[in-house]
């Protein structure tokens, strides 16, 4: 009698590894980003990670930073969390049942500025299923306030682990995360990379162990940062439950048909992978 999974988990229930597509809200402009969202969803994105333009993106590489800047410029200087949620609401409503779940990727300050509870409520109202705050360590007092507000509103918070994470850090992230755990493939910021570090499978294994220890053995793990080709995506899909493709999509975001073509190829590559044993 299991009901259809709610929230971000829905993205991982298709029987194949999930493709998470990162797009920048408002880039190249509001209409253009709406077209890109639709194109990515139709081409096979299982989950959309929607970036909020921000001037001090300390976890992002040049492609995503420039897209954020262009989005703000296109909107006359103001395109932030509020505008992103408004955009998300329109996309989700337009796409109806077929819409993949959306997680908002925002730095902490815009959320603080809006207010923890207000931001969580507005995310929920927009139909957004989750939030990723890359500069909010889960054990900080602020994260505890945010987590409480997000749970109250029914928004999943995805926390991140990195190759440098110690076992106790993995455990902390495993306990705090809802929806999925985001494995950062490499030390560094977002951006395309020629090859992925060989340590990814080990990090995924360590994260799985931490999840099991935290009593959430079924929480999916998605790996991102640096994934730029269908081949690399398949490589990740063989060890993880999901693959996040960011800069490589944002780079094509100003041309929906080119973006759709690319997402389609990556989706084919990811969904053809079977037998990683966890997503089912």
């Amino acid at each position: 009698m299991s009901a259809a999974p709610r929230g971000l988990a829905r993205a991982f229930s298709a029987g194949h590894p999930a493709l998470v597509v990162y797009l920048m809200a408002g880039y190249p402009d509001r209409e253009g980003s709406l077209a890109a969202l639709t194109a990515a969803a139709e081409a096979g994105a299982d989950l959309i990670e929607l970036g909020v333009p921000y001037t001090d993106a300390i976890a992002d590489g040049p492609v995503i930073r420039r897209a954020g800047e262009a989005a703000r410029d296109a909107a006359g200087g103001t395109f932030g969390l509020a505008e992103t949620l408004d955009l998300a609401a329109e996309f989700i409503e337009r796409s109806g049942e077929s819409a993949p779940p959306v997680a908002v990727m925002t730095y902490t300050n815009p959320v603080m500025r809006m207010g923890w509870a207000e931001a969580a409520r507005r995310m929920a109202d927009a139909g957004v299923s989750g939030a990723i705050l890359p500069d909010l360590p889960p054990d900080s007092p602020a994260a505890q306030e945010w987590t409480a507000a997000a749970r109250e509103a029914g928004v999943d918070t995805v926390y991140l682990v990195a190759p440098t994470s110690t076992e106790d850090r993995l455990r902390t992230v495993a306990e705090a995360s809802r929806g999925f755990v985001y494995c950062v493939s490499t030390t560094g910021v977002t951006g395309e990379r020629e090859s992925l570090p060989t340590e990814v499978p080990e990090l995924v294994e360590r994260t799985r162990a931490a999840l099991a220890a935290a009593g959430s053995p079924d929480l999916p793990i998605a790996v991102g940062f640096g994934v730029s080709t269908p081949e690399q995506a398949a490589e990740i899909a063989r060890v993880a439950d999901g693959v996040v493709v960011g800069s490589a999509c944002v780079k094509r975001q100003d041309d929906p048909s080119q973006l759709a073509g690319f997402v389609g190829k990556v989706a084919d590559s990811v969904t053809s992978v079977t037998g990683n044993g966890v997503s089912a």
């Binding site: 890359p134 500069d135 900080s140 950062v184």
Partner: peptide, 19 residues
């Protein structure tokens, strides 16, 4: 945790938390 009254703390990507 590095707070001076409400100010300070540590708002950084997980990658550098261990460092």
């Amino acid at each position: 945790q590095g707070f001076f009254g409400p100010y300070g703390g540590s708002f950084v990507p997980e990658t550098v938390v261990p460092a």
